[in-house]
Design a protein around this nucleic acid. Structure first.
Lengths: 218, 218
DNA sequence: GAGTTGAGTGAACAAATGTTCACTGAAAAC
DNA sequence: GTTTTCAGTGAACATTTGTTCACTCAACTC
């Protein structure tokens, strides 16, 4: 009598497969929204189905358990993150300063647009169910390795060993994680300050990395 | 008939105040242990009291709610952390390299000895109940400010503004947080590698910060 | 057009949850 | 020695939880 204007969002038209996909999406979205201010470990199956507007048992047609759902959300969230990395890679101006400026801006944009995905990763990375945690850790490791490969193309192999590149990309990825966390936590008004701070820090960091190398070997 | 050798740990002797304090401790310890592999948000009052060996209602004699208990744990955990910082500050050899080496070693020791406290902070910082999260954020901010004050004493005020020091100490504290997280997550065998990596990264970072400053103004 | 499939239903369950209330009994205050 | 205080008890409650099972009925297959 209040929200019955449109039957909330029960799968209405389309083929059977489409309808199934639609409620699957609804479940993913509901779960993502519901665990936004707590964690997956505190998310109940019935909360999710209540939000979606289906009966609890229908959940099992799509996922084996909340943990299983969590793994799907990891997949999805890292798709967002990889989209971001694709954007970061499109560099035209090769100066370090510009690369940093651009990267941080891209990060800001994506964290803003895909807020729930990034906040999901930041949270469940340390507090999710074990399987979810390790899935995220694995994905981050992959990103780190990709970054190391990128850096290998940009640096002199005489100065940078594979191991050194791993250490550096770990440092950069960690900075990104922390910066994203800060952006998620802070209120919208403080975003500019965070961007500026991240920029400065990345600059310190890269200058230091380059210096440190040439000092170490020169 | 199995664990009734010693009545698990019901407050036995001592004055009323002592007994109360003892069960309070037992509650804190039980909560800290129980949320170790999930989060406070998934911790139930009854779990805690069951673990302690008291009846659920007795909980309210000590804390208003789980969240209230969480705030006490934040207090306690940061007491551990400040103890660590006190150790870090006792530097005899003032070379940057030695300061870093020593700091990372101290971090390693404390993370190992006070594992549960550090892992509590790392987790609840992003996934705890709102009040707990903001309490932790506040505490970390205090630590950052203290570090900035320390750095102010070690650096040339002509080159380092208050704001710059804040940015730098934020960077250092974040590195510590991430490193502690890595130590907590990794299995004991991998600790040496993490220590080595953190050392390298901190060195990069500090060299860069110093360089960047003098470049920016010199 | 008959038969199969499978997403969603609805009742039922045992278990666990937070909070209430009146209580006990030993330590503290008088 | 009497009275007060208060940490811990134990029953009771209304909710919420995950999972089971037999079911419906529209979309698909043949």
């Amino acid at each position: 009598m209040e929200r019955a204007v449109t039957p909330p969002s029960p799968a209405e038209g389309g083929s059977r497969g489409e309808r199934k996909e639609r409620t699957r999406r609804a479940i993913l979205d509901a779960a993502l929204a519901l665990c936004q201010d707590s964690s997956m470990v505190a998310l109940s199956l019935r909360q999710v189905t209540r939000e979606v507007g289906i009966v609890p048992t229908a959940f099992y047609r799509h996922f084996d358990s909340i943990e299983d759902l969590g793994l799907a959300l990891v997949e999805e969230s890292f798709a967002s993150l990889r989209e971001m990395l694709r954007d970061v890679r499109q560099v035209d101006d090769p100066s370090y300063r510009k690369i940093i400026d651009r990267s941080v801006q891209v990060l800001r944009q994506h964290v803003q647009n895909q807020h729930d995905h990034f906040s999901f990763i930041a949270r469940e990375r340390v507090a999710g169910p074990p399987a979810v945690r390790s899935a995220i850790r694995h994905q981050i490791e992959l990103v780190e390795r990709e970054l190391a490969a990128d850096l290998a193309r940009l640096t002199d192999p005489a100065y940078w060993s594979t191991e050194d590149l791993r250490v550096l990309s770990n440092l950069i990825v960690n900075s990104m994680v922390i910066t994203a966390e800060a952006m998620i936590t802070a209120r919208p008004g403080a975003q500019d300050a965070i961007v500026e701070q991240a920029r400065t820090q990345l600059r310190m960091l890269l200058v230091g990395a380059l210096r440190w190398r040439s000092e170490g070997l020169g």
